[in-house]
Design a protein around this nucleic acid. Structure first.
Lengths: 146, 146
DNA sequence: CCAATAAAAGACAAGAAGGTCTTTTATTCA
DNA sequence: TGAATAAAAGACCTTCTTGTCTTTTATTGG
């Protein structure tokens, strides 16, 4: 995968919460439910969702009838935002074979081959949003759970 | 990076050995020299080169005037062979968000967005060979060391 | 207003990746 | 032929990612 396990968990969770929102207005969904539906270790997922919430990609409410939910604005976040938050920007910026000196002026042997790949990746990650993916889920074109 | 640190070390080493071969016919290069020129921890690199040698991507000779070298055939290996050996094929095959059930018939929400990315990656990794990259090094178009 | 609920937070443990050090094996050439 | 050389091999350590468990804090509805 391009993404770490943690990041994949984050994306899947945002998709599930996003999907839940479009189903029932203002409906919140709890940590346990998410972890069970997505088969992700509960407590580990807790931390990930904490991170997402702390950085504004997800909303949460404590206490009775609390849980996680997303605003319209949050639904419009591109995949990029999640990846940069969880995995960082190394995959988009760092030299493909780890050379500190690699640059446009002094490219490494994989530089030019990797460049279009990176650009395509960047474009994809910026154009795909939680919302666009949730729509493909709701239209039955794609699937998140069994 | 798409590649693990270990894999990047492997690629850089193959490039250096390949370059060395084109410079002086049948010239071998020692582990210590490689690790110093590429600034890679010596003993760690030793294991990586062992793996490459054991799987036929690199040749070695023990004893006095021994070292690592590459045959013409080895020079023609594509990047793909190295990546598959060291990192495995997950990046080319596994679902982008880690769904075991994801397939062409039952795609996940990132499936179609990632597909062209993967295909481009595959093509790139298969067409770039050690030899083609060594040539770009020798022509001064790209750089491996400071 | 308090008991139940659910997220936040923190400590800790397992596993994988990356890195170090020492010993063994094979080779050469003086 | 044996001393020097260099890769192979193995034991071990460190760091990072992933995963588990417990305690704390905030909220709400009866």
């Amino acid at each position: 995968m391009f993404l770490s396990k943690t990041c994949a968990y984050a994306v899947r969770s945002l998709l599930l919460v996003g999907q839940h929102r479009l189903e029932e207005e203002n409906g919140k969904i709890g940590l346990r439910t998410i972890s069970e539906r997505l088969e992700i270790p509960t407590h580990f997922l807790g931390k990930i969702l904490q991170t997402l919430t702390k950085h504004g990609l997800l909303s949460s409410a404590k206490g009775v009838s609390g849980g996680f939910y997303m605003t319209d604005e949050q639904l419009r976040n591109p995949l990029m935002t999640v990846v940069k938050l969880i995995d960082g920007s190394d995959v988009f910026e760092k030299c493909g074979i780890g050379l500190a000196t690699c640059s446009e002026q002094r490219p490494c042997p994989v530089h030019y081959a990797f460049k279009p790949l990176r650009e395509k990746m960047l474009k994809t990650f910026e154009s795909e949003t939680i919302e666009s993916m949730v729509k493909s889920l709701n239209s039955g074109d794609t699937f998140l759970v069994v």
